[in-house]
Simulated assay, not measured.
Amino acid sequence: MSTNTLPSFLEKYFEGLTLSPALFYSWKYSIRFEISDPLISSHEKDCLNQAFHRSITLFHRVFEEGDEILFITDVHTTNKDRFLQKRPLNVYLKYIKDKQRLYQLNHHCVPSVFQDEDEDEDDDQSLTHRYVLSCKKTELRYAQLLKAINYEDFAHPSTILKSNSQSSYDIYFINL
């Protein structure tokens, strides 16, 4: 995959869209799914089980075995944070089946996706590390990854960046 795949794909199919949270509100055509029943307390086991089931079901509906997927992780941190320079990103080590694929992982830093356009860039110390891997569904441990993402939403002690609590992240799957 070339480093240009993500920007050129977004420009071709989603002109003007910036990949940032809350993505649902950034585009005129969107579908939003409740991942769990809002009437059930997030501390109940049924709520987390329902979230696991729904997220895996949605993933199966969106991605077929042969589809080319862009697996994107944005890690939001500060310019001074050296954690990502010392340690590899757990999300890719744990959830990619073939570790040789990690050599094709594309990394670059972009200005923080949360930066206000009116702010002076020199004053903002935040930074987004963007990791992009082109892969197939069969190359991912997607069920385990989706569970880990759900754990984040339900304040579970198992977190993807547990060793770097000052950073946050967003994960996107794009079906090319």
Rank of each mutant, 00 (worst) to 15 (best):
L93P: 01
V75N: 03
Q85K: 15
Y13L: 07
T3P: 00
S165I: 08
E117S: 13
R82I: 11
R87P: 01
V91T: 00
L146T: 00
H53N: 14
I35E: 09
V113F: 14
A51P: 02
R82L: 13
D67G: 03
N164S: 07
N4H: 14
H107I: 10
I149Y: 08
S167M: 09
R101T: 07
G66W: 04
C47R: 09
L89K: 04
E15P: 09
N175V: 10
Y131G: 01
D124A: 03
L102C: 00
D122E: 15
K28Y: 13
T77S: 14
E44D: 14
K94E: 09
Q125P: 04
P157K: 03
F71G: 01
D124L: 10
S126K: 14
I56S: 01
D124V: 13
S36M: 11
Q144G: 10
V75R: 02
Q50M: 12
K147I: 06
H76T: 02
G16H: 08
V75A: 05
P38V: 05
E68S: 08
Q100P: 01
I72E: 05
S41N: 07
T77W: 07
Y13C: 00
Y95Q: 03
R61D: 12
Q115C: 03
K80C: 06
L127Y: 02
A51Y: 08
N90Y: 11
H53I: 12
S134E: 14
H76L: 14
E68R: 06
S163W: 15
P88I: 01
Y103T: 05
D98S: 07
S165K: 09
S20Q: 13
T77I: 03
Q85I: 08
T5Q: 14
L58I: 13
K137T: 10
D81A: 13
R32K: 11
I96E: 04
L6D: 02
